[in-house]
C-alpha cells in the first residue's frame, strides 16, 4: 500500500511539473503583455461580449484613468500588477458566475483552461 501511495505521489508531482498527458494543449507561462514575471496566457473573445456594457470592463472610458487595452495598465503598473489575478478573476469569472447563477449562458465559471490557453486558440 505504501508503494502504491508513493507511486501516486510521484505521478502527481510529475503531472504538476510536466503537465497533464491527457488534457490537450498546455498553456505556456510567459511574460505576456510586458508582465514583470511569468503569467498564464489569457483568452478574451471580444466578439462574445457584444451584449455587455463597454464600461463594465473599460472603466477608463468613464473614469479617465488611462487609455489603451486593459493589460497596458493592469500588467505593467507596479500598483496594479500584484492584484492582476484577483481583479481579473473577480471581473471575468464573477460576471460569468452571476450569469450562471441566473441560469444564463455566461462563459466559463471555473475551468481554468477555458480562459488560460491564449488568444491563438480562439
Amino acid at each position: 500500500m505504501k508503494t502504491l501511495l508513493g507511486l501516486l505521489a510521484l505521478t502527481g508531482i510529475l503531472v504538476v511539473i510536466l503537465g497533464s498527458p491527457i488534457a490537450g494543449p498546455q498553456p505556456k507561462m510567459g511574460r505576456y503583455y510586458g508582465s514583470p514575471a511569468p503569467i498564464l496566457p489569457m483568452t478574451f473573445a471580444h466578439a462574445d461580449h457584444g451584449g455587455i456594457n463597454c464600461a463594465n470592463c473599460h472603466h477608463n472610458f468613464v473614469d479617465d484613468s488611462g487609455s489603451g487595452p486593459c493589460m497596458s495598465c493592469h500588467v505593467t503598473s507596479e500598483q496594479l500588477w500584484p492584484s492582476l489575478e484577483r481583479q481579473f478573476h473577480h471581473l471575468c469569472r464573477g460576471c460569468h458566475v452571476e450569469k450562471a447563477a441566473l441560469g444564463e449562458q455566461g462563459g466559463p465559471t471555473r475551468q481554468c483552461i477555458a480562459c488560460h490557453l491564449g488568444d491563438e486558440r480562439a
Binding site: 500500500m1 501511495l5 501516486l8 505521478t11 502527481g12 503531472v15 504538476v16 511539473i17 503537465g19 497533464s20 498527458p21 491527457i22 488534457a23 490537450g24 494543449p25 498546455q26 498553456p27 507561462m29 498564464l40 475551468q111 481554468c112 483552461i113 488560460h116 490557453l117
Partner: peptide
C-alpha cells in the same frame, strides 16, 4: 484508505483533466 483514495481522485481528476490547473500547485 477509501477516503484517502477518494481525496486523491479529487486532486488527480483536476490535475489530469485541466491543463492549466497544475499552475495552481506551483
Amino acid at each position: 484508505y477509501i477516503l484517502l483514495f477518494i481525496a486523491m481522485a479529487h486532486a488527480f481528476w483536476f490535475l489530469l483533466g485541466d491543463a492549466a490547473l497544475s499552475q495552481y500547485l506551483k
